[in-house]
Design a protein around this nucleic acid. Structure first.
Lengths: 148, 148
DNA sequence: CTGCGATGTAACAGTAACGGTTACATCCGG
DNA sequence: CCGGATGTAACCGTTACTGTTACATCGCAG
């Protein structure tokens, strides 16, 4: 993960859907979402595909096709979202070329770093779990300009 | 930050120096460090340059030149190291193309995400601050294979 | 049962960043 | 003033991400 904007886009998509589905007649399509995110519908479909694999959204094909949330916004955390789009790459990368094993530091540094990075990952996940899509929607709507 | 291995290399370098300087006669050169990290000396010098800007190491030029820690290993935290090599890029990236401001979600999503990402950054920094280079050195040496 | 509008996915292009490398100027103790 | 190291610019190959085109697939409406 990162530097990519997948988590960002995924949260945007889910929050958008949470707002959109307040109107029971509305149909969420990748086209409509793409306008809000200001990108290509294929990018949105790629993202929605990952969210579907994680069981967060569902898709319907054929005529009148589209997407809807598979769970209540209150029950979807940013950790769920992170897991859905995180390519299981760690947050911090280890050496690109394996250190020298004949040096004491080179030999032991990677296991030691793995422990540290594991704790960092834990901290991030703990924090992500505290916010839901419903929270995001509330915060996003609170940002609106005064409509005079 | 990340996916790069700069933090990883920087911690490796500092931990190596902490061990090396136990021998008062030893001189830490980018060449020697590069062997342990298994990379090019220029990569090490680039890293050391950032660590020097942050006041963590010092360099000496001319004959018998080399590097040494500017502080005790016990007083250098991984947060110091992170700050030294982190290009002030945030841990998680915002949208690459600005969302539509005419959509309520597109308008408010970035400020809302900034708050969340700020909390994540805080959590990571808090965790990084709990470990020092001295801790790393101890943990690294504890990984050594039994020397029969 | 055919058309249409959407999903689903492969393929490709452009950009950017990273790690690695070469080259070379600079410094300064011996 | 020589030698060995720092300091730094420039460049290359690789990789990843975003955006885009293209096209097969699905399934209700009419």
């Amino acid at each position: 993960m990162s530097g990519n904007s997948r988590l960002c886009v995924a949260v945007h998509v889910l929050t958008w859907m949470a707002l959109d589905q307040r109107d029971p007649a509305a149909v969420a399509t990748s086209q409509r979402i793409a306008v809000s995110v200001n990108t290509n519908p294929v990018v949105i479909r790629r993202c929605l595909g990952q969210l579907r694999e994680a069981g967060l959204v569902q898709s319907r094909r054929g005529a009148g096709a589209g997407w809807h949330l598979a769970r209540e916004p209150e029950s979807i955390t940013l950790l769920d979202t992170y897991r859905a789009v995180g390519d299981d790459e760690p947050l911090f990368a280890l050496h690109s070329s394996t250190p020298s094993e004949s040096c004491p530091i080179g030999f032991g540094i990677q296991p030691a770093l793995r422990q540290v990075f594991g704790r960092l990952d834990e901290a991030v996940r703990r924090e992500l779990a505290t916010t839901t899509i419903a929270d995001m929607l509330r915060d996003v709507l609170a940002q609106q300009p005064a409509t005079a």
